[in-house]
Structure formats: C-alpha cells, structure tokens
Computed example of a mutant assay.
Amino acid sequence: MLFDAETYQTCTTRKGRSRVKICGLRDVEMANVAVDSGADAIGLMFYAPSPRYVTPEEASRIAAEVKGKVAIVGVFVNPAAAWLDEVLARVPLDAIQFHGDENDEFCRQWGLPYIKALRLRQGEDYAAVSDAWPGASAFLVDSYNPDAFGGTGELCDWDLIPEGLNCPVMLAGGLRPDNIGEAITRVKPWCVDVSSGVECEKGVKDAALIRAFMREVDNVSGD
C-alpha cells in the first residue's frame, strides 16, 4: 500500500471513502486548505516545465507546515538521480510519483513507496504493462496526451482502466467537483488525484474548489 501503518493512521482522516490527493500545490496557504478540507495526501511537482513546479526550498516550507497531517508525495518526470537526491535531502517525502519512462529498478532505489503513472490510450495491454513495475505501491491512471505528461485537465477514459492490476488504482485526469461523484461511483478507485480541476487558472489552486471537491467525495461515500 501507499502508506506505512504509522502514516496511514496519521493521514487517512476519513474512512469508508476513496482517498484524495490534491496535486500540484505551490504554497503553504493552499496546502493548509487541503489539510483542513480532509485531503489524505498532497502532491509537490518537481518537474520544471510544469506550471505547478516548486523548488526544493518552496517544497520544504510546505512540507514543514503539513508533515504528519497528510502524506507528502513528490511528483517527477524522468528525473536525473542527482535531482532526486537533492530533493530528498531537503524535502521529507512519504512517497514518490513517477510520470515518465522510469523502470521499476530506478523507482525502487530511493527507499520510499512509489506510484507509477499509466497514461491510458486504446490498444495497450495495461494488465501486462503493470507487470513491468512489480514494486509499485499504486498505479495512477491518467488521460493520454502526446504533448504532456499529465495535468492537462483532459478526462480519462474510464472504460480503458484495466482489471486485474497488481496494486491499488489512483484515478486522475480531468476530475472536478462536478464529475468526481460519477467517477468514484463508476470506477471505485482506491484514491483520486486532482490538480487542474481545483484551479482558478493554470497552476493556481482555488480554496473554494478544493472544498467543493472534498464535499462531493464525502457525499458520494455517504459520510
């Protein structure tokens, strides 16, 4: 599983529903909104081309504020080993999310649970693909875009999500307050991952949208 027992007890704030990761946070204020709204994890983006990129300095300030309240996930795309080492030396991550072409051996070597992103498109045998990452703690299923590794706001084709994956599914891709209820009802994911769907403009999180998203997650689970 994504969290060890101690982190699970600390960070899973509400039982009986899909967990929630608010990804692409860039400041302490919105991180606190995510915590106060009941999110289980936050994502910090360490991929420089992304509009949600944070420096290790910025990330360390956010982590210092919310450590122990939510799981802190670092998001990387084909990172150099030296870059990962630098981030890990400065930011107390609980897990790493890989969105590029990283293989299982590379993903395992950092000593943290890791999430592997699968960008869904027709014609791929994802049950077989998943076997290439036996060390993954979860698979994040996202929409495919040839020009971006994620965060596009494009709705994932839920019918392409494979059955029989060897670890839990995190659902991403175009999730918003107005469709998260249907997404959870249809897919029943272990975790949902939202970024652009709670932004007022690209890369800028909106407190009202975060709260609305969390309310809808709770509503569909009956909490």
Rank of each mutant, 00 (worst) to 15 (best):
P49C: 11
D178S: 12
V87Q: 07
A59V: 02
K188V: 04
D4N: 15
K69A: 06
S143H: 12
D178R: 00
L2Y: 04
L118A: 12
V33A: 10
E102R: 06
R61Q: 13
K202E: 13
L155E: 08
S195D: 06
A59S: 07
G150L: 10
F213G: 02
A59P: 09
V194W: 02
G197W: 04
E58Y: 00
A31W: 05
R215Q: 14
V35H: 12
V198I: 14
S37D: 03
R14D: 14
V220A: 14
A183G: 05
T7N: 06
N219G: 13
E102C: 04
G151C: 08
G123M: 09
G197K: 05
A5R: 10
P79M: 07
P168D: 10
P189F: 05
D36A: 15
D4L: 05
W83G: 01
N179V: 09
E29Q: 13
K188P: 00
C167H: 12
E216Y: 00
E154Q: 15
T185Q: 15
T152L: 08
D36T: 10
P113M: 05
N103R: 04
A41F: 03
F106Y: 14
S50C: 09
T13Y: 06
V198P: 02
F76P: 05
V91Q: 07
W190G: 03
L112Y: 13
V194M: 07
R121T: 07
S130V: 04
Y8I: 01
Y53R: 00
V28E: 12
F149K: 07
R186Q: 15
Y126A: 10
A138P: 01
A117Y: 03
E102F: 02
K205M: 07
K21W: 03
S50T: 11
C156T: 15
I115Q: 06
Q9D: 14
V66Y: 05
S143V: 12
